[in-house]
């Protein structure tokens, strides 16, 4: 298992998928899917369980959950409906159906992670997120910015990039936007979550190494020769892709 030792001597006990907080430098992550329900939330939980600062969003116009038939989805507003109220509503509508198709399980998981689905386009990047302090993975994200955005579908990646261009990059802050293509079902979301955690571990390892002792100056000779984190990202993704050939990835460096 790829397990970065970001801090020398940090105990790295693993039990039931949770691991001890290794401390040290941590990249801040953001996971994105269409409805901020399945894929982004699975990876949100995974990254949070691995003690990474993480937030998550959906890029769709509305939160859409499967209903009793394909033309009758359950539709909710982003930022306005909590996972808990969705859970209660679906449970009262048809507990057997929504238990059987995994929706209640999913919402059960999600309501333990944060209050409700958030829409990417409504996210004011850089606005303090202190009121989100009870969300899983909120620690470290008080400033409301992230270093890496991981989308779970190419369409979401497109939406994120288009939206970042639309915003005009007022923050001047670089952000790596990576798509990891995951099919929208519970099983694939689990697998994708593992893949994303592995990616996060690999990226964080490189970032932590860069932050590690850097006694010499940035423009002295060896600074240029030593590869920094940003520069290593394509290589890290390339290696990761070899490990996860079923989760095709796209990457770019964008701006908040």
């Amino acid at each position: 298992m790829a397990q970065p030792q970001t801090q020398a001597g940090a105990a790295n006990g693993i039990s039931n998928g949770e691991r001890q907080d290794p401390g040290g430098f941590k990249l801040k992550f953001c996971t994105v899917c269409a409805s901020n329900q399945n894929r982004s939330m699975e990876s949100h939980l995974r990254l949070a369980a691995a003690h990474y600062p993480v937030i998550s969003f959906g890029t769709g116009s509305l939160v859409r959950l499967p209903g009793p038939s394909i033309d009758k989805p359950n539709v909710y507003q982003f930022n306005k409906t909590s996972y808990d109220s969705m859970y209660k509503e679906l449970e009262s509508k048809d507990p057997r159906l929504y238990r059987a198709n995994g929706l209640l399980n999913m919402l059960e998981r999600n309501r333990g992670v944060k209050w409700g689905p958030e829409r990417w386009q409504d996210w004011q990047v850089g606005a303090p997120r202190l009121e989100h302090n009870t969300d899983r993975g909120a620690e470290g994200l008080e400033g409301g910015v992230v270093d890496v955005v991981i989308t779970c579908e190419e369409r979401c990646w497109d939406a994120v990039i288009d939206n970042l261009m639309e915003r005009g990059s007022p923050l001047n802050r670089p952000v790596h936007v990576i798509n990891v293509d995951i099919k929208d079902n519970h099983e694939e979301a689990l697998i994708g979550g593992r893949g994303i955690l592995d990616l996060a571990d690999s990226l964080n390892k490189a970032a932590a190494e860069e932050r590690e002792a850097n006694p010499s100056g940035f423009d002295s000779g060896n600074a240029a020769s030593r590869a920094g984190f940003d520069e290593r990202v394509p290589e890290i993704i390339g290696e990761w892709q070899e490990r996860w050939p079923n989760l095709p990835a796209v990457w770019t460096l964008a701006w908040f």
């Binding site: 497109d158 990039i161 288009d162 261009m165 394509p234 290589e235 390339g238 990835a249 796209v250 770019t252």
Partner: peptide, 25 residues
Amino acid sequence: MTPKSRVMIKSMEKTTRSLLVHILK
């Protein structure tokens, strides 16, 4: 192509296209 250069070439292509599509839109 190495895995790294694949990622880079794909990335440049996709980003170029994204910008142009953004403008066109």
